[in-house]
Design a protein around this nucleic acid. Structure first.
Lengths: 337, 337
DNA sequence: CTGAAAGCGCTAACAC
DNA sequence: GTGTTAGCGCTTTCAG
């Protein structure tokens, strides 16, 4: 392992100068700088982040905590976060909590000493515990907030109302009037917001009948489970809690001979890459997930860099877009009568 | 931040005893141990891994480098690795190289000082560079080797011959005699092994005609591109390089009115979770990917713990299994004549 | 502009 | 068994 001492020896300066050359180049004469940099290059010197963090307080590493890295939603988000933290010279440690609050809590405690800040995505932690972490750590919340009376914590969320309006509007434009919504887990923060938004969006149209179901697992299996119930009210279009649920619905329907979009239109949420994998490809509403990850990292890093703790732009709400694909079309004439 | 000093003060011992209580409990009297542990608990003390690594040489962190975390293959592998390293008390830092050798090289250099070892999955690095890393770092190679004359490096690979035999045998059992293989990128290490294995497996049957194509991108888009060419020789079954390619084939075929498995059977590789998302669900050949990740971590950690550098069991070759789903069936009577 | 020196939190000799 | 002490590699005063 090559250290500052090696570089110092080779370039004939003290270790302090080596450190300065790297951290504050303007405080070193140009010719020493060149000599040091040459030595750094020649030896392939790599500052030891652990040591530098120990002394300087900053570790150069941030954490990203997700419930399930296997979920395409979070893997795309992670990819964006990774790219953007690398670009800004930070390391990223990713933690998969396997959806468990206890694991999340333990892991956050464990990584805290070695990071400058943390991004908690779709945290499963109860409000008080989350508030406590937010109060003692530089952190950014993704897909989650703490209510108005909680300590000011930056959040990045999705504007569900915009998404719901896009979804419902798209279906209405196509001519759909009976629409079913297959909701996710009853206690989920996102499900609560999403279903409320869809209800509101539907109410804006006097002629839309909305059939609401909920409580399904937010994955393909949940979709399969919901496949029969979804069609009970004879909707001409179904909105699924997310793409995975939509894919489950689609698979089971195809098995049963129900055709999409001929018999029923199908629309997913989140716009994950799996929406493009099926046939027909899924119309889906969501933000660019990599960008989502990048935004969260940007917010956190700005905070760490210590710019203004401007309470004004603490909450970033991203606007989802609808990506129309073949799974939605006009209802068959005479359907849903 | 709470340190050893705080714990020492609260429990009325020296910092050395605190450290000992945590690292070598048997070297401390039972009653002091209890006192220290109580203090640790009360203060919520978390050892600072950076500091401990700096002094002790071991950081308690390992690295996992993957080409693309968004790819279901690697996200499942990562999930397994994460679970197993957590279980053994190690932190895991995941690096996504975005398939670029230069990024991989730079990132490996950057994380090296802060980790005890590294897992390189499907490395894009040229042999010499990889050999150089392997020589200077405790590492484990996944889906890649260095040839027989290279420095001894532990490897976890998939036994492609077993997989190919399972795939071809399954199709032969169903009655298929004309089989097409849609290969991946020409220069890929896995593609080279996989196509050779399939060729060998097919040759074991005198009555099988194998049609080989290759050079397609290893994703759904590659599959869509290959959809027409795949059917040119009128095969009754098609084996795809991986599940993503299979899904691309399936989507495009469905679009064209070609039915799976009625018109043609389809079989994927890797057994990623996306194989269960389509309709029909994909028959696929592969190992349990989480287990794959766990195995790699286990190997690395055994190595770090410093057990025998037994050259004997350096190369772990996992046996893939075929998971039969609805995408494969007997060929239609009179097909492929 | 540069060097000497103090210490970040921790572990591993080495004394007692 | 337990405490004292010397650093790990680095940054950062403080002198010069």
């Amino acid at each position: 392992m090559v250290t500052v001492h090696d570089v110092a020896a080779l370039s004939g300066v003290s270790i302090a100068t080596v450190s300065r050359t790297l951290r504050a180049p303007h405080r070193v004469s140009e010719q020493t700088r060149d000599r040091v940099l040459a030595a750094v290059h020649e030896l392939g010197y790599q500052p030891n982040r652990a040591a530098s963090g120990l002394r300087g307080g900053r570790t150069g590493v941030i954490g990203l905590v997700v419930p399930d890295i296997e979920n395409p939603y979070f893997s795309s988000l992670t990819k964006g976060a990774q790219a953007s933290s690398r670009e800004r010279g930070y390391g990223l440690v990713v933690v998969d909590t396997t959806e468990r609050a206890d694991v999340e809590s333990a892991e956050v405690q464990a990584v805290r000493p070695q990071i400058d800040g943390i991004i908690l995505a779709s945290s499963r932690l109860p409000d008080e515990q989350l508030a406590q972490i937010a109060a003692t750590t530089t952190c950014v919340l993704v897909n989650r907030d703490l209510g108005p009376d909680a300590p000011a914590t930056p959040t990045v969320t999705i504007d569900e109302r915009v998404g719901a309006r896009a979804a419902v509007g798209h279906l209405h434009d196509l001519g759909h009037r009976r629409i079913a919504y297959i909701g996710g887990p009853a206690r989920s923060w996102s499900q609560a917001r999403r279903s409320a938004a869809i209800r509101d969006a539907a109410q804006a149209y006097a002629d839309i009948d909305l059939i609401e179901l909920s409580g399904y697992a937010p994955d393909a299996e949940g979709g399969r489970q919901a496949a029969d119930a979804a069609l009970v009210g004879r909707p001409t279009a179904v909105i699924a809690y997310n793409d995975l649920v939509a894919l489950g619905l689609l698979a089971r329907w195809t098995e049963l001979g129900v055709r999409v979009p001929d018999d029923v239109s199908l629309l997913g949420f989140d716009n994950t890459y799996v929406a493009q994998l099926s046939f027909p490809p899924l119309t889906s509403v969501g933000v660019d997930l990599r960008e989502f990850g990048e935004t969260a990292v940007g917010l956190l890093l700005d905070r760490i860099a210590g710019s203004t703790t401007d309470a004004a732009d603490l909450n970033h709400e991203l606007e989802p877009k609808l990506v129309a694909r073949a799974s939605t079309a006009a209802p068959a004439a005479g359907a849903g009568e």
